Amino acid sequence: MKLTKLFKEFFESEKSTGIILIGCTLISLLLANSAIGSNYIDIWQTQFSGHSIEQWINDGLMAIFFLLIGLELEREIYHGELSKIKNAMLPILGAIGGIAVPAAIYIAFNYGTPEQSGSGIPMATDIAFALGILSLLGKRVPNTLKVFLAALAIIDDLGAIIIIAVFYTKTLMFTNLMYALGIFAFLLVLNRLKVRNLIPYLVAGVFMWYFMLLSGVHATIAGVLLAFAIPFGNGDEKSTSYILQHFLHKPVSFVILPIFALANTAIILNGDFGEILSHHYSIGIATGLIVGKPLGIFLATFIGVKLGLGKLPSRVKWKHIFGVGLLGGIGFTMSIFITLLAFEDATIINNSKLVILLSSLLAGLLGFTTLRLTLKKRK
């Protein structure tokens, strides 16, 4: 199976991003727990135009990240693994299982508690880390497995986006939402009129983001809507969608996500780890990511194949699917992002972030080890 130039670029950028994110996380943890820890944490809480720097990062810069996710999803639908329903079914089923089972496990531990709202936390997969760890296995990884994991993670993120829009909208300002959707409709008209210039899309996209922010629906949703309004054309290197996606890869991978990691992993490690890990929400997050993700992905794809709804990619065996399922338990970026929406208590947020980091680390190690033992070296 040959990989497209853009997919190779995407895969390689995710490999580098994963390594950089690990470095940024370690730096942030060290600084937060050093002699200058309070000053470092205060930097991210500095107010600018009515919002903290951390909020501008999470509501503003991350909208660009979601724009890139939307463009990647669009490409997969038109030209990638999701363009043919038979090929698309396996990662779709895997993503559904990988969302439903972790959520069910979390709810089982937290049903009826104030922390029940965190059920979306273990649903997410961090594309950068998952693909980054897979890339460390080199040429022994079949291209079909790379594409399966990429498609699975992208669909998983789409699920997270829908969950954010539906379940984490606390107050809805209907008028502002209508303004945002009106701008989206205007962009769709531009698309139908075959306007290929990026400038009107980007300018209108900023206004759509602004009204979405005021509406109460999380502003990052505007990034996804903008992605689907931008003309795809025939998908070649001259298409508007391709040009923007190609341009965004490096800023998102090497600027936006590292800044997000620095701002959101400033965790003070001064509590009793045993106590932190004993909370119901901690158990739900850890079990959901480490157990629920691989179990859900494996069972959903296995049942789907047995029912004839999909088929295993070439050179991929069930033990590889299980290994990829373990990598799916690396929540990190998206899990932390949902944590910030799900909880308001600073202690619970801090504890949840720590559990996400530890669970993602363990899931990554288990996934890497499983795939390294099960994938044969290629000469």
Rank of each mutant, 00 (worst) to 15 (best):
F247I: 11
T369A: 15
L371D: 02
G223C: 04
G271Q: 13
G233V: 01
G367L: 01
M334C: 09
I41V: 12
F247C: 12
T17I: 05
R192E: 15
A266K: 03
I133W: 02
R378F: 12
R378A: 15
E76Q: 08
Q47Y: 10
L341T: 05
V166W: 10
G132M: 03
L187S: 04
A363H: 02
F232A: 08
L225A: 09
L358W: 04
F254W: 13
L82E: 00
I69T: 06
S282D: 04
V291W: 08
T171M: 09
I259T: 11
Y242T: 05
T369V: 14
G308F: 12
K2H: 13
L327I: 06
L61H: 05
A346I: 11
I99S: 05
T175E: 15
A346Q: 13
E344A: 11
K15C: 07
L340Y: 13
K5Y: 00
I297F: 04
M178T: 10
K376A: 15
G223S: 04
I53W: 06
K379Q: 11
S16W: 11
F343A: 01
Q47S: 13
S278W: 06
G367P: 00
G97Y: 02
G138Q: 09
D126F: 01
F368S: 03
I107W: 04
L327V: 07
L158C: 04
R192T: 15
L71H: 00
I41L: 12
F186T: 12
I19R: 09
E81T: 09
L136Y: 06
L371C: 06
A165Q: 09
F302C: 11
F174M: 14
A180H: 03
I290C: 02
L93T: 00
I283Y: 05
S359P: 05
P122L: 04
L248M: 11
E344S: 14
G325L: 05
V255I: 13
N197S: 11
I22W: 07
V316G: 05
H279E: 09
N58Q: 10
S83K: 15
I107K: 02
G323K: 03
L307I: 10
P258M: 10
L307S: 07
K379V: 10
F332M: 06
L6K: 00
L152N: 01
F148V: 04
L181Q: 07
G284C: 03
L309I: 06
S34T: 07
R315H: 15
P313V: 06
T171E: 11
G216C: 10
E72D: 07
T171N: 10
M1A: 14
I22F: 15
T369L: 15
G159E: 01
F254Q: 02
W318P: 08
S49E: 13
E54R: 14
L357D: 07
L3M: 09
E344Q: 14
F302N: 11
I127K: 03
R315P: 05
G233Y: 03
G367W: 00
G159M: 07
G60D: 08
I20H: 02
A32C: 11
S28E: 07
N197Y: 08
A124F: 01
T301Y: 00
I303E: 10
H279P: 02
L340H: 12
K170Q: 15
N33A: 12
L362D: 03
V355H: 01
